[in-house]
Amino acid sequence: MIFLLSTTIMMGTPLLFGALAEVIAERTGMMVTAIEGIFLMGAWAGFVGGYLSGSLTLGFLSAMLAGLLVAALYGWICIYLKQHQVVTGVAINLLAVGLCSFLYRVIFGVPITPLTVNPLATIPIPLLSDIPLLGPILFNQTILTYIIYLLAPLSYFMLYKTSIGLTIRSAGENPEAVDVAGINVLRVRFLTVLLAGVMGGVAGAFYSIGFLGMFTTNIIGGRGWIAFAICFLGNWNPKGAVIGTLAFGFAEAIAIYMQSTGNSALFPNELFIALPYIMTIVLTVSRKSFSVPAKLGVPYVKEN
């Protein structure tokens, strides 16, 4: 049980990075449909940076840079060239698959045994990690987990209690008003997409160097889309994102637990693998009221 819950928190970490990134960007009206590609390039760059430099810190920095670049391409096409967000995302995701498997080959050739790095170690917090039950679940995690659970309340505060947050939310609800106030709507949107890219890059790198210690092209396997879904299901709110993340982290923890204990006689493995995706569908169906940002997915064109 402790294993399940601590895995829930661990596997939820990258999802929360991605979901918070989506929440902030989508509040300005920008769906980051390139999230899957951002995760993948982050995982790739994190591994390459970490492996070549021998430092995981440098790995995560290169992952941030890679996420930033993918997001910049996406943002440029969707915000400044006003092209369709869904279609552009699909194209960039496909390009990311090609780029990272091609460049992996360019850098490493065809290694005989899979290349590995030592993944991020957990940092037990003194005293707190000794608390029975809660200690090993909450306070024996990697640094990224601590960071994101600090960032979640911070981003809530930022979105709802500061003028920056007001600008961000208004850019997605009433961009004309933001424009009249003398703030550049396009720039607000572009900056939040870049921020989402940086956070998504870290999330991707979590899978390669934070957890598995290696890179394959199917390492992300739709988890970017799950972060995307969590943002929807969490009603574009950091609080909802945390709750959604825990639910999905738990689903993933069950899958990992079931795989490690071998085939269950009652339920096939595949059921647990598909569980997060089935959950998304069930939850989108069962949630009645959403507060979708009014201009989500709509490019902003200034009236002359």
Binding site: L94, L95, V97, G98, S101
Partner: peptide
């Protein structure tokens, strides 16, 4: 993977 690369760039 040159295939995905070509498809991605073309798209």
């Amino acid at each position: 993977s040159i295939i995905e690369l070509m498809q991605g760039f073309v798209m």
